[in-house]
């Protein structure tokens, strides 16, 4: 059975785990701070909504960033077939968003 070398696979897993945990953590903090600020009344509300929106945008962007990271990692590991597949997924994601907006 052919399996990828453990060290290379583990490095990729570590990078993706770092990206997703830090990204979702940062997003959660932004959303949580925004929600707390909302409780302090109308004066803080616009800034609070901005923080929550930023957190949500970061969360929505994370899967796309993850696919891009995978593509770059595969490229550096000279696994061009998987890098190409990651690029294809990225292209479909962009196309799907554009289609959704156009169909809106």
């Amino acid at each position: 059975m052919t399996t990828p070398t453990c060290s290379a696979a583990d490095r990729l897993n570590s990078r993706l785990a770092w990206l997703l945990s830090r990204g979702s953590g940062a997003s959660c903090w932004l959303i949580a701070i925004g929600m707390v600020l909302r409780m302090f009344g109308a004066s803080a509300r616009s800034g609070a909504d901005g923080l929550v929106s930023t957190g949500i945008v970061l969360l929505i962007a994370l899967p796309t960033l993850r696919v891009a990271t995978m593509g770059v990692c595969f490229l550096f590991r000279r696994e061009f077939d998987f890098a190409l597949i990651a690029a294809l997924v990225l292209a479909i994601l962009v196309a799907s968003t554009l289609l959704g907006v156009a169909a809106g």
């Binding site: 949500i56 994370l62 479909i92 799907s96 968003t97 907006v101």
Partner: peptide, 8 residues
């Protein structure tokens, strides 16, 4: 994420 961008 394929539909989230459009929803946002």
């Amino acid at each position: 994420a394929a539909s989230a961008g459009a929803y946002f």
